[in-house]
Amino acid sequence: MDKSFSELYLNFDKVNWERMQEATFATLAMTVFSLVAVLILGFLLGLVLYSLSRKKSPAYSILYNLVSVISNIFRSTPFMILMVLIMPFTKAIVGTIIDWPAALPALILSAAPFYARMVEIALREISPGVIEAANAMGANSWQIMYKVLIPESMPALVSGFTVTAVSMIGFTAMAGAIGAGGLGSLAWSEGFQLNNQTVTLVATVIILIIVFIVQGLGDFLTNKLDKR
């Protein structure tokens, strides 16, 4: 006899809540640590890409294309493939290829170039007239960057970081399926493989709650910073 919906998905007695709590912590740890690194590295790489794109000499153009190609390689490689490819690198710097720290290098390498592109696009959208006005007042390149470009593009920077963060939460679930722990691992090992749909449902709901919180906070900050 086919099981009812409540028997399949709402049998909470089959959920190991202690393991669910540990998996939630692992997902949050993966997300927070990798997001801090992505914010720093992606922002700096975005500034480099923007600065190089404004230089007119052939040498700077070649350097921009080189950085752009390397960035696109990591940004375009599917996350699970990237995680498998860099396992020796992960083992060398983290000391393990299992548990949530093992997911950090792949998360950072995939998301930092993605955010860097968003930073570059946000900076390019600033009106040239604003930059020319700053030049006319005697501002140097560094002053234009931190007094004009970054403040003016802040709403777009925050919005881009929010999109990146939401994508990375999805990546943590995929990382869990190949040994990194977290809610994705629990949903796969105890949910799918053991046919425990309630575990899969609870893990999915927790991931969605995390996504909604991140998205809501990002939208709130974007609206606060947008002066238009």
Rank of each mutant, 00 (worst) to 15 (best):
S6K: 14
L8E: 12
Y9A: 12
N11A: 11
N11T: 07
N11M: 06
F12V: 14
K14I: 08
E22M: 10
A26F: 13
L28T: 12
L28H: 12
V32D: 11
V36S: 11
A37W: 05
V38P: 00
L41M: 08
L47R: 03
L47E: 03
L47M: 10
V48T: 13
R54Q: 14
K56G: 09
Y60V: 04
I62P: 06
L63Q: 09
Y64H: 14
L66Y: 13
S71Y: 04
N72G: 05
S76Q: 08
T77P: 10
P78G: 13
F79H: 06
M80P: 01
V84A: 13
V84T: 12
T90I: 00
V94T: 03
I98D: 03
D99L: 09
W100A: 00
I108Q: 05
A112P: 04
P113M: 08
A116M: 04
A116T: 01
R117Q: 04
I121D: 06
N135H: 07
M137C: 02
A139T: 09
N140V: 03
Q143S: 08
L149D: 00
A156N: 13
A156H: 11
V163T: 10
S167A: 11
I169P: 05
A173M: 11
A173G: 09
I178N: 00
G182Q: 03
S185T: 06
Q193T: 07
N195Y: 15
N196G: 02
Q197R: 11
Q197E: 05
T198G: 05
T204L: 11
T204S: 10
V205F: 07
I207C: 02
L208Y: 10
I210F: 12
V211K: 05
I213D: 03
F220E: 00
F220I: 00
K224W: 08
L225A: 10
K227G: 01
K227E: 03
K227Q: 03
